[in-house]
Amino acid sequence: MDTIITSDSGLLVMAAAAAVIIGFVFVNATALGYIERKLCGRFQRRHGPLEVGWHGILQMPVDGVKLIAKQLVVPHNVAGALFYAAPLLALAPVALPFLVMPFAPRLQVIDMEAGVVFVLAMISFNTFAVFLAGWSANNNYSMIGALRAVAQNISYEIPILLSLLTVLFLTRSLSLRTIVAVQSPLWHLLRHPGILLAAVIFFIAAIAETNRAPFDLPEAESELTAGFHTEYSGIAFALFMIAEYTCILVNCCLATAVFLGGWQGPPLPFGQYSACVWFFMKAYALVFVIIWCRWTFPRVRFDQLMNFSWKYLIPVALGNLLLTALTAQL
């Protein structure tokens, strides 16, 4: 086995791998928070954070400390345990997909036979947490935000699955490692025009799935204050933000592994490990595009959001799947 955890590895290795993944989740959220604020500033011809540290680079750690130190304000009549469980439930599942991500040929915690299914299941768990948060907060804004989140995520899960199926038909494997390994000479994206279309559909649906602008209806601040996390303050709010940034990276990692060839790239010294450079470069390039879209496009209306998925994305993805399956075998 080439993965970090094998069937005979001890508890210590597993704990270490889990600790590294959790650390990575927090570092990634901090870095993405800074990058997002800096990029947002540049897109609007501002400077972004400048004061704390060199070019404001310590702004997010400082904000994190502030949020941890803040009082958790809990409104009356919230559904006690559920209210506290929601932020934890938002973060924990979205951190798990990193366990099966093949960052480099020998840099993967565990290679699951059904890796793609596992990643999709864990991402969908986020919806559950969002709904729980909205339901338990006893607030109409939260409730509407949660209902929107559920409707939106159900609608956009389908095009995600359909576009991934387009590739899975060709690889005939659900293991992310195998999917990356078979892209050795040519990325899936470049193999067939149908896969290119599937990748575009996946990317649009992934933006909606992570509740990011222009599809950020569940937390539309102009209508719903802050949507499902209106009543959350301090570290509970921070956990939702960390979960959002982690969810973005997970979706981008999935797109990288399935469409963009994962770790495949020009050879590097110690390529068995250092090839993760290519993986992260591709993944963060996709993250950049998601941030770029957020600060470019205005928010869509809810009926537009639903129509876009059911009337355009799903039929196109379905037709594309059939056509690709037919033509790619010829």
Binding site: L39, G41, R42, F43, Q44, R45, R46, H47, L50, E51, W292, C293, W295, T296, F297
Partner: peptide, 21 residues
């Protein structure tokens, strides 16, 4: 038009900021 919009923000990103600290 979406691509055009992305072009507008990308040009703004590489341009000098107009605000001052």
């Amino acid at each position: 038009s979406l691509v055009q919009g992305l072009g507008v923000t990308l040009r703004a990103m590489v341009a000098r900021p107009v605000t001052v600290p």
